[in-house]
Simulated assay, not measured.
Amino acid sequence: MKEIIKYSKNHEWIKLIEQESLYAYIGISLFAQKELGDIIYLDIDKKIISDQNIKAGEIFGSIEAVKTVSDLFMPVSGKIIDINNNVLLSPDLVNKDPYNKGWILKIKILDIKEYNKLMSLEEYKQYINK
């Protein structure tokens, strides 16, 4: 299966990795990490690992850079499967490799329609160039 990355208006990306099971990775876009600058700290709400489902648009943590602190928003409703502890220990992975080693959450998507409504790369490029 070809990996397709979709984008939210809050600059999170989501990559579907297993179509049948609806597993996906979430991170922040290359554009967002460049805007933030050097990322020095990631704070993920530890309560989200429980059996709780998180709705699209809800804050799941924050990302701190030299310039500013920004909230992290869920691009789709999902159940959190895993948090990338590597980025918690080395937040600069988000700067170095935002779409691979810099992923933040692994989730199970609860509603594929929400995923399908997100922006394609072409749509996202138009959105950030407004």
Score class of each variant (00 low, 15 high):
K2M: 14
K2N: 15
K2W: 13
E3F: 06
K6W: 00
K6R: 10
N10W: 03
H11C: 04
H11Q: 05
E12F: 08
W13R: 00
L16Q: 12
I17K: 12
E18Y: 10
E20D: 05
E20V: 01
A24G: 01
I26Y: 09
S29N: 08
S29F: 04
F31V: 07
I39F: 03
I44C: 04
D45T: 06
D45M: 07
K46V: 09
K46Q: 14
I49T: 07
S50Y: 07
Q52F: 12
I54T: 15
I54P: 13
K55A: 13
A56V: 13
A56T: 14
E58F: 06
I59P: 06
I63K: 12
A65V: 05
V66M: 05
K67G: 08
V69P: 10
S70Y: 05
D71F: 02
D71P: 02
L72Y: 01
M74G: 06
V76I: 08
S77A: 07
K79D: 02
I80V: 15
I83N: 00
N84F: 02
S90W: 07
S90M: 11
P91V: 12
P91R: 11
D92Y: 15
K96D: 12
K96V: 09
P98K: 01
N100K: 15
N100P: 13
K101G: 09
K101P: 08
K101I: 04
K101S: 10
K101F: 11
K101M: 09
I104Q: 01
I104S: 04
K108C: 01
K108D: 02
L110Y: 07
D111R: 01
I112E: 09
I112Y: 09
E114M: 07
N116H: 06
L118V: 05
M119W: 02
S120M: 04
L121M: 11
E122C: 04
K125Q: 09
K125L: 05
K125D: 04
I128K: 10
I128T: 14
N129Q: 10
N129R: 10
